[in-house]
Design a protein around this nucleic acid. Structure first.
Length: 948
RNA sequence: GCCCGGGUGGCGGAAUGGCAGACGCGGACGACUCAAAAUCGUUUGGAGAAAUCCGUGCGGGUUCGACUCCCGCCCCGGGCACCA
C-alpha cells in the first residue's frame, strides 16, 4: 500500500467506493462472469449450440469492433473507446432480450512483428503471442462482455487455413459478366470445351495443349498473376508503399534508390465487382461520408474513347466529358507518349527533346510539386477535331501522365481548369461549349458572355450547350450532361470516331508481399511456371520456421533482379514433393505471402463458427447471425464499429471477398457489414520545449494559462495519443487510480461516440464521484450495510424515474451514451436530495447503470438481494402514465424574445394557451397599448406575441 | 487545388426550428478538519448596482422565432491529388 492510500484509508469511511474497492469488485465479477460463461451466445448448430433452445425465439444481434493489431506497446486509453461503446450497446441489447454475438479477435500478422523479429531474432510468433496475451489482459480488466470462446487470431493455423481456403475459392472462380456474378472456374472450362464460348484466337479447345488451356483459364481467374507496377527498392530487397518513398525517390529507411518497375504479382480482380460494390452502398446503413468516400474511390465515370486524326495516324484519348468535344482546341501528349517523336516537326525537334528529357528525369512527385505553373512545348504538328473538322495543335506537357488513360488528352480549356491554365499560359484558343448560369458570372463580377476572354476560370457543370453542332449532330440547347454524353457517344460510334466507355478509378488489388509474417499462398508451380492450387485436403500450408526473417538485400542499383523474399531461404519447404492426384511429383511453392488485409477480410464469419473444422462457417449459423432480416436486405453484421481510417481499403476488400463467397453460395448475406458506425479518436495534448523536443506530458504543469516543464515554459499542441508525443495514458493507470467502471464511464461521457475528443485525466474524477454517490445512496459508507427502503415513492420521484428510463432507453439505442449518463446523474442527484432510495427506484437505477458500469451494478444488484447476474435482466421500461404532466410550463415571447414562463393544463387548446400567457403580469405590461400583429401558439411549447 | 468533417462558457460538451449552455471538469464561497487532502453543500457565460443588454467563427438571407435551414466567406481537423 502506498503512503497516500494508507493515509486516505485511515481517514475515509471504511466502505467508501474507492479505487481499491472498485478493483476488488471488478476482478471478482470478472471471475464470476468467466466461470459462469455469462456472455456465451449459443449458435443454432454445431459445437457452440448448447443452450440455444432457451433463446431460440428471441431476437438476435451481431455486434463487432474492428479488431486490433496486437502491438508491443500495449493499449493506451484511446484504443478502447469503440470497444467500450460496443460493450455498452451489447449489454443493453442483451438486457432487452436479444441473443447477442459479441467478441474480439486479433489481426496478428503484419510488419511490426516481423521487424521486431528482424531486430531481435525472436520468432514473430513468440512476440505476437506475448502481445496478444497482454492486450487480452488489458481488455479483460475493462470488463468487456465478450464471448471469449469466439476470440480468434489471424495467425492461428486453424484460422489461416480458412483464409487460404477462401483464396482458393477466389482463385478457382471467374467473373461471368453475363450473369454478373462469380462462378466456379470449372464452368468456364466447360464452356470452352463445348465451344459455347469461343476461345480468343479461335483455336478449338480440343486442339489446345494443356499449357495453352491453363494459360487461357488463368487469364480469367479472380486471383491471377500479373505484371504490376511497384516501387522496387533493391537496397532493402523489398517493394515499398508510396508513403515509404521519399520525395527524392529514395527509401524512407536506408535512403536507397527506388525504381518504378513492373513485377509479377498476385492480383485480385476486384474491378469486376466495381458496379456491385457501388450499387449496393445504397442498401447499407453506413454514414453518408463513408459511402461518398467509397464511391469516389471506385470512381465510376461514363466517358468515351475518341480518335483524333493526325499525321501519325489516330491519337486515341479517353475523356469523361465527350459532351465538350466541340470545345477541344488542342491536344496534349504525355512526355513518354510513343507518338511524341513522330509528331514532332523538324523546327521544334530540339526544344521538344530537351523538354521531354527534363520531364522524364523527374519523379512523378516532382512533377506534381510544381503546382499550378504549367509547362509544355508545341510539337509543331496538328490533329483534327473530329466534330468540327478544324486543325488543332498538338503539345507535349508533363501534367499529362502516361500511367492514366491513354497518355494523351483532348484539351477543353473552357471546361477543364488545368487545360484552361495551360491555354492561358500559352495563348491557345478557348471556346465555350456550355453557358455558365448567371450567378456564376455574378460571382466573378463579369457580364454573361459565351466569349471566354473575360472568364477567370473554366466552367465545370451543367449549362446550356453552345457552339456544339455540325451537319450531323447538335448538342446545342438545354440538356443535361448525361443526355449530351449519350448523344455524342452515339455520333462517335456511328462515324467511327470512337465509342462510349465506362471507366473506374478502382484498380485491381495487389495481393502479394515479399515478407515472412503473413499467410503462405496455397499455390505451387510445376515446370511450366504456371500456378497450381493445392487441394483443400492439404490445408493449411503452414509457415516454415526461419532464423532470419529479412528479405535478401541486393545491390542498391540492381533494378533487374527479382526480389528474393524471406521464404526463399526455407529451401526444404519451397522445393516440395507432393501428390496432387497424379502421383508424387516435384513442385516449387509460392514464396510470397498474403497482405495483412487478407485475415481481416472475413473474420466476422469465423466469429460465428470459430471451431468448425468442416466449413469456413456453418451455413445454418451464418444465416442465423448474418442472413437478411427481410427479403431484399443485404444481411450482414448488425453493427460494425471502427475508425474512419478504414473507410476505403479494408471495407472495400472485405465487401469484395464477401460478395465472392455469396456468389459461390457459401454465405446467405450479400454484404459483410450492414450497419457501420465510425467512432472518433481520443486525442491528447503534447508539449514541446524550446528545442522542439516533446517532453513527458504528465510532468507538465499549468500556471495562468501557460505551461511549464520544470522551470522552462513549453508549448502545447494537440494530436493523436502516442509514444512519439510522450502523451500516452494507459488503461492500467486508470484501473489503478479509479477502477474500470469509472474509466468506462468517463470515456462514454466525454462526448458523442463518433466525435474525437481530447483526453483529460483531470476530468475523470467527476465520474468517480458519480459512482460514489450511487454507492452511498444504497450502501452505508460507515457500516457497509445496504440501505434500501420498502416505502411509498413520491409522485415527483416517480416522474423523474420514468422520464429517465424513457430517455436512457432511447439514448442507448441511438449510441448516445454521453447523454444517457447525464440523465442517470440527474436521477441520482435527485435521489440524493432525499438521502435514500426506495426499492422501487433502486432496482431500475442499478439496472440502467449496468451496461455502463457493469461491475458496480452487479455488486449493488447482488447486495439488493438478487442472486443471479443482471446481465440478462430486462432493462426497465417506462410507464407512459408518468411521462405526461398535468400541467405544462410554456414559454411566452414578445416579438420572438422569451419574456416569461406560464403554466397551462395538459391538453389545453390554443385559446387557453393565449389567455394564460396574457394573464402574466409581465406580459400584460409588455403588450399594453401596442397593436397586436400576430399570435403564434405552439401547444405545449410556447406563445409568441408579435406586436407593432 | 479537390473531397469529407467540425467551429457553442476557462475546458469536455447539451439543446424534434421554440427558455442557449443539460451533465461533468475547473473556479469562488461555505461545511467537516488543529490544518490539509478527500468528501459534502451553495454558486458560476459576459457586461451592469439593478432594470436590462450582449452572446453559439464572420457577413447576408428565410422565418413570428435560427446553434439548428439557405447563400457567401474565415479558421481548425482528416483524407485524396495534374485520375482527363
Amino acid at each position: 500500500m502506498t503512503e497516500a492510500s494508507s493515509r486516505n484509508g485511515a481517514d475515509q469511511p471504511t466502505h467508501r467506493y474507492t479505487a481499491e474497492l472498485a478493483q476488488r469488485i471488478e476482478t471478482a465479477w470478472q471471475a464470476r462472469w468467466d466461470a459462469e460463461g455469462t456472455f456465451d451466445a449459443p449458435n443454432p448448430a454445431g459445437a457452440l449450440s448448447d443452450g440455444f433452445e432457451a433463446v431460440a425465439d428471441r431476437p438476435h444481434l451481431f455486434v463487432m469492433d474492428m479488431f486490433p493489431y496486437p502491438s508491443g506497446a500495449g493499449l493506451h486509453v484511446g484504443h478502447p473507446l469503440g470497444y467500450i461503446g460496443t460493450d455498452v450497446y451489447a449489454r443493453f441489447k442483451r438486457m432487452c432480450g436479444f441473443n447477442v454475438l459479441y467478441t474480439l479477435g486479433y489481426d496478428a500478422f503484419g510488419l511490426p512483428a516481423e521487424q521486431h523479429a528482424i531486430a531481435t531474432g525472436v520468432h514473430p510468433r513468440v512476440n505476437t503471442e506475448q502481445n496478444v496475451a497482454n492486450m487480452r489482459r488489458q481488455l479483460h480488466r475493462l470488463g468487456l462482455s465478450h464471448d471469449r470462446r469466439r476470440s480468434i487470431a489471424t495467425t492461428d493455423e486453424d484460422y489461416y487455413r480458412w483464409t487460404q481456403w477462401i483464396f482458393l475459392q477466389i482463385f478457382n472462380s471467374w467473373y461471368d459478366s453475363e450473369s454478373g456474378r462469380a462462378r466456379p472456374i470449372s464452368e468456364l472450362e466447360a464452356q470452352f470445351a463445348s465451344a459455347e464460348r469461343a476461345t480468343p484466337n479461335g483455336m478449338p479447345w480440343a486442339e489446345m495443349s494443356s499449357v495453352q488451356r491453363r494459360e487461357l483459364i488463368d487469364q480469367h481467374r479472380l486471383a491471377y498473376l500479373s505484371e504490376a507496377p511497384v516501387n522496387w527498392c533493391p537496397g532493402l530487397g523489398t517493394i515499398l508503399a508510396n508513403e515509404e518513398v521519399t520525395a527524392e525517390g529514395r527509401s524512407d529507411i536506408g535512403n536507397y534508390p527506388v525504381f518504378k518497375r513492373n513485377m509479377r504479382q498476385w492480383v485480385m480482380r476486384i474491378t469486376s465487382y466495381a458496379d456491385r460494390l457501388l450499387d449496393d452502398l445504397d442498401r447499407l446503413d453506413w454514414p453518408e461520408p463513408i459511402k461518398i468516400m467509397q464511391r469516389n474511390w471506385i470512381g465510376r465515370s461514363e466517358g468515351a474513347r475518341v480518335r483524333f486524326p493526325s499525321p501519325a495516324g489516330a491519337i486515341e484519348v479517353f475523356t469523361t466529358r465527350p459532351d465538350t468535344l466541340f470545345g477541344a482546341t488542342f491536344m496534349v501528349l504525355a512526355p513518354e507518349h510513343p507518338l511524341v517523336k513522330e509528331l514532332t516537326s523538324e523546327r521544334q525537334r530540339d526544344e521538344v527533346q530537351a523538354y521531354v528529357r527534363q520531364a522524364v528525369s523527374r519523379t512523378e512527385v516532382q512533377r506534381q510539386e510544381e503546382g499550378r505553373d504549367k509547362t509544355g512545348v508545341y510539337l509543331g504538328t496538328q490533329a483534327t477535331n473530329p466534330t468540327t473538322g478544324q486543325p488543332i495543335p498538338i503539345w507535349v506537357a508533363d501534367y499529362v501522365l502516361m500511367g492514366y488513360g491513354t497518355g494523351a488528352i483532348m484539351a477543353v480549356p473552357s471546361g477543364d481548369q488545368r487545360d484552361f491554365e495551360f491555354a492561358r499560359r500559352f495563348g491557345l484558343p478557348i471556346v465555350a461549349t456550355q453557358m455558365p448560369p448567371d450567378d456564376w458570372f455574378e460571382r466573378h463580377g463579369i457580364a454573361p458572355t459565351v466569349h471566354c476572354d473575360t472568364w477567370p476560370e473554366a466552367y465545370i457543370g451543367e449549362g446550356r450547350y453552345v457552339n456544339s453542332a455540325n451537319e450531323s449532330v447538335s448538342l446545342d440547347g438545354d440538356r443535361t450532361v448525361s443526355e449530351a454524353k449519350a448523344i455524342i457517344n452515339q455520333w462517335l460510334e456511328q462515324h467511327g470516331h470512337g465509342m462510349g466507355t465506362v471507366t473506374y478509378k478502382l484498380r485491381d488489388w495487389l495481393f502479394s508481399r515479399q515478407r515472412y509474417w503473413g499467410e503462405p499462398f496455397p499455390i505451387v508451380y510445376d515446370e511450366t511456371g504456371l500456378p497450381i492450387a493445392l487441394p483443400e485436403s492439404q490445408l493449411p500450408v503452414t509457415l516454415p520456421d526461419l532464423e532470419d526473417f529479412k528479405p535478401q538485400a541486393l545491390e542498391p542499383d540492381d533494378d533487374r533482379t527479382d526480389p528474393i523474399p524471406p521464404l526463399a531461404r526455407a529451401t526444404q519447404w519451397v522445393e516440395a514433393e507432393l501428390d496432387l492426384g497424379d502421383g508424387p511429383r516435384h513442385y516449387r511453392r509460392e514464396i510470397n505471402v498474403m497482405p495483412q488485409w487478407a485475415g481481416s477480410c472475413w473474420y466476422e464469419l469465423r466469429y460465428i463458427d470459430p471451431v468448425d473444422d468442416q466449413a469456413v462457417v456453418d451455413p445454418v449459423n451464418e444465416r442465423y447471425w448474418m442472413g437478411p432480416r427481410q427479403p431484399g436486405d443485404t444481411g450482414g453484421v448488425d453493427l460494425y464499429v471502427g475508425g474512419v481510417e478504414h473507410a476505403v481499403l479494408h471495407l472495400l476488400y472485405a465487401r469484395f471477398w464477401h460478395k465472392v463467397l455469396y456468389d459461390l453460395g457459401h454465405v446467405s448475406s450479400e454484404e459483410p457489414f450492414h450497419r457501420l458506425f465510425n467512432q472518433g479518436y481520443i486525442q491528447a495534448h503534447a508539449y514541446r520545449d524550446e528545442r522542439g523536443q516533446t517532453v513527458e506530458a504528465s510532468e507538465v504543469v499549468e500556471r495562468d494559462g501557460r505551461y511549464f516543464h520544470g522551470d522552462s515554459e513549453v508549448k502545447r499542441e494537440y494530436g493523436k495519443m502516442g509514444k512519439s508525443l510522450k502523451n500516452v495514458v494507459t488503461p492500467d493507470e486508470m484501473y489503478d487510480s479509479y477502477g474500470a467502471d469509472t474509466f468506462r464511464l468517463y470515456e462514454m461521457s466525454m462526448g458523442p461516440l463518433d466525435a474525437s475528443r481530447p483526453w483529460n485525466t483531470r476530468d475523470v474524477v467527476g465520474m468517480q464521484r458519480f459512482l460514489q454517490r450511487v454507492w452511498r445512496l444504497l450502501i452505508d459508507e460507515e457500516t457497509g450495510v445496504t440501505r434500501v427502503e420498502d416505502r411509498e415513492v413520491d409522485a415527483e420521484t416517480l416522474r423523474v424515474l420514468h422520464r429517465t428510463i424513457d430517455g436512457v432507453r432511447a439514448d442507448m439505442d441511438g449510441l448516445r451514451f454521453n447523454t444517457s449518463i447525464a440523465k442517470l446523474i440527474e436521477l441520482t442527484n435527485h435521489l440524493m436530495r432525499s438521502g435514500s432510495a426506495p426499492r422501487e427506484v433502486a432496482d431500475p437505477l442499478v439496472l440502467m447503470l449496468a451496461p455502463l458500469a457493469p461491475h458496480l451494478a452487479e455488486e449493488l444488484w447482488s447486495r439488493l438481494g438478487h442472486e443471479t447476474t443482471l446481465a440478462h435482466q430486462l432493462f426497465p421500461e417506462a410507464d407512459p402514465a408518468y411521462l405526461v404532466d398535468e400541467q405544462m410550463e410554456i414559454g411566452v415571447s414578445v416579438n420572438g424574445k422569451p419574456r416569461a414562463r406560464v403554466l397551462v393544463p395538459a391538453g389545453a387548446d390554443e385559446a387557453a394557451h393565449e389567455s394564460a400567457a396574457r394573464a402574466d403580469d409581465r406580459i400584460a405590461t409588455l403588450l399594453d397599448g401596442r397593436p397586436m400583429r400576430k399570435v403564434v401558439v405552439v401547444p405545449g411549447r410556447l406563445v409568441n406575441f408579435v406586436v407593432g
